[in-house]
């Protein structure tokens, strides 16, 4: 039986207020180590909300997110930050690079925050990551000197910096042209093939089809689950 990297148990995210709104409504999900999971669904269906919950960017109203066997619902905000720093890598729709820093400095940021490597080691790894993504010659450029695809690749390099178990990507190709989209997806595919777990939210069904497994979210629930990779997944079908 394959090792579970990421698990959601009865996950609920509710927005309280004058008009209460449920973004994620009781999702159970398991993602194996090295699996490439694509989350699809119409706008407002709750797929990004689910992703933020899985990546500990948001806290669930009910339920539990288990990362590498560790329950996270009782963790303090600082402990959640530590888990994000060491076990999760984030890629967003927009690159969200720090504009005043070079590509290399942006990639070094999570490593410096973790403080587990020496400066030469960090620089070596940063340059190696940028090189492996075809950005070796752009290491000293700032984000405004790069194309959209290049920026997104720098963001992926940053997400990989601390060798996280899980890469969480929220529509990483949403703002890219076709060529860059293909490049980014290939990179994510390669990452999964190398043993890291990748969870991607995307609107593009063609791209989602290249994932090991695809789950389709409607009204905060899993409406459909397809693909071979989902052997360990427990999917509650929308009624």
């Amino acid at each position: 039986m394959s090792e579970i990297a990421l698990q959601a148990v009865e996950l609920v995210r509710r927005i309280e207020g004058d008009v209460a709104h449920t973004l994620v409504n009781g999702i159970d999900l398991s993602v194996k180590k090295g699996e490439f999971l694509a989350i699809t669904g119409p706008s407002g269906s709750g797929k990004s909300s689910l992703l933020y919950l899985l990546g500990l960017l948001d806290a669930p109203s009910e339920g539990e997110v288990i990362i590498c066997g560790e329950p996270t619902s009782k963790l303090s905000e600082s402990e959640r930050a530590d888990v994000r720093l060491t076990k999760c890598g984030f890629v967003f729709q927009f690159h969200f690079l720090l504009p005043e820093f070079t590509s290399l400095d942006n990639v070094l940021l999570p490593m410096r925050a973790a403080g587990k490597m020496s400066e030469p080691e960090m620089r070596e790894r940063g340059l190696s990551l940028l090189g492996s993504l075809g950005l070796g010659e752009h290491a000293n450029k700032r984000p405004n000197q790069l194309s959209g695809g290049q920026r997104q690749r720098v963001a992926i390099a940053r997400a990989l910096a601390n060798r996280p178990e899980i890469i969480v990507a929220d529509e990483p190709t949403g703002a890219l042209d076709t060529v860059s989209t293909q490049q980014v997806f290939k990179i994510l595919r390669d990452i999964a093939d190398q043993g890291q777990t990748v969870v991607v939210v995307t609107h593009d069904p063609a791209l989602a089809a290249r994932a090991d497994r695809r789950i389709h979210i409607v009204d905060g629930k899993i409406a459909e689950s397809t693909g071979q990779g989902g052997g360990e997944a427990v999917c509650e079908m929308a009624t």
């Binding site: 905000e77 930050a81 888990v83 994000r84 720093l85 720090l98 940021l109 925050a113």
Partner: peptide, 16 residues
Amino acid sequence: RQDIAIMKSLGMREYA
């Protein structure tokens, strides 16, 4: 604000 959000999402603690 956006940079703050990114730094926090990357795992930097609030006090840092």
